[in-house]
Design a protein around this nucleic acid. Structure first.
Lengths: 275, 275
DNA sequence: TCCTTCGTACCACGACACGAAACAATACTT
DNA sequence: AAGTATTGTTTCGTGTCGTGGTACGAAGGA
């Protein structure tokens, strides 16, 4: 079996890396995992999984139910998770603005944060329509194939941007960018016009329009987007939605302390290069 | 010499154990921790801390801010934390009942869960009074010195109970039980009367009255309590408060599917909850 | 009854985690 | 400006300890 070089990077302590995988595995399967299931899912030797689970349990990161001999996430994870929530000022600040935006078009509004090469959905307001998107709060998608991700990437300093770009663009739909060149062109276009477009690049038949959110230091920290089935977001509507999304994003940025821009010219958006 | 006690007993993988300590350390200090700070706080060698942080970062459990060269909790922690929240049905179910209880006496109402030898405050409704308790949501206290903890411990099967009792009872105040014998007596008393008392055992001058919450399988999963300064909870008032706390706890238990004891008629257990 | 599959326990071996020391790149002092 | 102290990063040899095989008792299923 050809093991992936995943755990082979530099300065990676393998026991830690693999144990964290166990933790994530337990979380993703909603608890109720038995030892052998964990062993199978992670590909670890049964004995090794056993020791990891014991260690994780000792620290409170997983909880062992002695009745069913199953493992689930522990309270310490919840505890730490709350601490992260407390740090996410964007979320509270953005919520009321997102609500307005949702009501304006009655379409799903998303708030996303860049984490590594993926964006994480941090908040999401559903549209009234029955047809809803697949994404969920806490879920992830590649940054390069979503309007949220592209909105953030486009306004990142080049050096940082490179860090968040994958070496290989695996196409998620027929419309996903497959070359770094095409993606870079897309990014500079979004930077020019101030918002990002996703025409079914991440999910078939789904259209998204996203705009970046800046904090007081002038760097992108998040993005918001309106997403809907292509049928409900025809080309004629896009300018109006894009303007609204950008407006909302600017409002959030200002409330985060981002210095207001006097000029409202829509192509003149620049991030401060100095820090 | 004291290594066995320090970094755990058998089946503990030390790199994992220590890395988890790093993670908790980063969380407790609200992020913004530098490498050497982590090294100092955890007592780990600088190189080791460096490798752990790298590994944790690779897995998304900590985030490295390259600007300030500091580490904070990563998005993956938030992600997993949400999953735990989703599992905590008690919390949603208990909230409205807790609200009623808070309004009845205008005192702080707590919801706690047992985790290891400690209880974790999962929800908390403050009283209107200016004088509030020290405890916070997400915080911890020893189980044996709080009414929440004792309410849960008392209704645990003996074998499980022993697992959650510390070998050494370190006194937190002058009133804390110092002997296992005294604690056991207290526990059987609480089991008899159905609620637990804490007269300044955990925090000087703080009184708490707690009652256990059961789930559909009939086992304790949590406890609620009313807590207040001793001056506002005089002996005369205790019976009334205790009755109300027990009533509220029973209501929550029933809504969690706990079969009411009085009538055994199947399918006939949906009255007397006032709704 | 046998047979499977579970969690737990033990052990010998060699991978790899570890700490010392030195590196480069900043901050702080003089 | 030169010196000094502290930072994060890198390399490397040593010996610890994490690892996978293996085995045992218990608990179901056939």
């Amino acid at each position: 079996m050809s093991e992936r070089a995943a755990s082979g990077g530099a300065y990676i302590v393998k026991p830690v890396y693999k144990a964290l995988n166990v933790l994530r595995c337990v979380g993703e399967h909603g608890g109720r995992l038995t030892l052998t299931e964990v062993s199978r899912l992670t590909g670890l030797h049964k004995t090794t999984a056993y020791r990891y689970l014991h260690t994780l349990a000792e620290c409170g990161f997983v909880a062992h139910d002695p009745r069913t001999d199953t493992y689930g996430l522990g309270m310490r994870v919840w505890e730490l998770g709350r601490l992260v929530s407390g740090d996410m000022r964007v979320r509270e600040v953005a919520l009321p603005v997102m609500r307005e935006l949702r009501d304006e078009f009655n379409e799903t509004v998303n708030l996303g944060i860049l984490d590594g090469k993926e964006i994480v959905y941090v908040e999401m307001l559903e549209s009234g329509h029955a047809l809803s998107m697949r994404a969920r709060v806490g879920g992830r998608d590649p940054a390069y194939s979503t309007s949220l991700g592209k909105a953030i990437l486009a306004f990142l300093p080049e050096e940082e941007q490179r860090y968040h770009l994958p070496s290989r663009l695996s196409p998620r739909t027929g419309r996903t960018h497959t070359s770094l060149k095409a993606l870079r062109d897309d990014l500079s276009a979004t930077r020019r016009r101030g918002f990002a477009l996703d025409n079914g690049e991440n999910e078939e038949d789904a259209r998204c329009i996203g705009a970046p959110v800046f904090d007081q230091s002038g760097s992108v920290v998040a993005a918001i987007s309106v997403s809907a089935p292509a049928s409900r977001l025809p080309d004629e509507l896009q300018p109006r939605v894009a303007a609204a999304v950008m407006k909302a994003a600017e409002t959030i940025s200002e409330r985060l302390g981002y210095p207001e821009l006097r000029d409202n010219a829509p192509g003149d958006r620049r991030y401060s290069s100095g820090r």
